[in-house]
């Protein structure tokens, strides 16, 4: 015989009786939020949902809770209808090719092949070599310092070149923290070039975090080649 265990108290009970239909209004707002695409692709339906939601809010503010509840439910339904219509119209709505939008998921492999790591705005030149870092580090290794000495010499020989110093990270860890870490790498690289006597006024530091990997492999070798500062010339 199975014993029934008592319900555990998992949260405070909501006492919603007789008050404003907060839950329905929240749901209606959520439904409208979820139908945001409809503002572009099914604007009339979206506007109808928004109007009904505004009406629900007004009724609730006037203390007409039953009517507000009904209007809130109607707003939800209208938002859902708008969302569905927008989905149906998505392709023509976004006139240009919209990969990944119409199927439920995106095959990541096909995008790996089409990736363009060099799309940062500049072009790489032979004279400015990429330097590499340890995990979660922004300090230059001895090997990087030697590379940087040659990079500084190239900069001195090309005084008119405007250079982008791009900080990059491997794919592991927090995407946002990696943006910060990539910036730290780019700034430390620029600071080291300044130490070496390079004119850094024409060096723009930018972080791409883990967003533009040099390669997509999920192995130590790929990670190591992605933890880098690249230089490109505008």
């Amino acid at each position: 015989m199975r014993r029934i265990l008592p319900l555990m108290l998992m949260s405070l009970a909501l006492a919603a009786c007789g008050g404003p239909p907060t839950k329905t209004l929240t749901e209606a707002q959520t439904a409208i939020n979820g139908a945001i695409l409809a503002k572009k692709c099914a604007p009339e339906d979206y506007a109808a949902a928004e109007r009904m939601y505004a009406k629900a809010q007004t009724l609730s503010a006037q203390g007409k809770y039953d009517e507000a509840e009904k209007a809130g439910e109607a707003a939800k339904k209208l938002a859902e209808k708008a969302r569905q219509k927008a989905e149906e119209r998505r392709t023509e709505c976004f006139a240009r090719k919209d990969d990944g939008a119409n199927n439920g998921g995106t095959d990541i492999e096909q995008f790996i092949d089409r990736s363009d790591p060099g799309a940062g705005g500049g072009v790489q030149v032979d004279g400015l070599k990429t330097i590499y870092y340890d995990f979660n580090a922004a300090e230059l290794t001895e090997e990087s310092k030697q590379t940087m000495a040659r990079n500084a010499a190239w900069l001195n020989a090309n005084p008119d070149a405007r250079v982008i110093v791009e900080g990059h990270c491997d794919s592991r860890g927090s995407a946002e923290y990696n943006l910060a870490l990539g910036e730290k790498r780019a700034l430390s690289a620029r600071a080291y070039l300044k130490q070496l006597g390079a004119d850094v006024g024409r060096l723009e530091a930018v972080s791409y975090g883990e967003e533009r990997p040099a390669e997509y492999g999920e192995d130590e070798g790929s990670y190591a080649r992605n933890r880098r500062v690249e230089f490109s010339v505008r």
Partner: peptide, 29 residues
């Protein structure tokens, strides 16, 4: 009924997927 607080179905999760050479925002139920 079972937990004294309603379930979350109908709520949305905003997330990111790779699209082409970039990344796009997606809404997932």
């Amino acid at each position: 009924y079972y937990t004294k607080s309603p379930g979350f179905f109908g709520s949305q999760i905003v997330t990111v997927k790779r699209t082409g050479s970039g990344k796009s925002l997606f809404m997932v139920s």
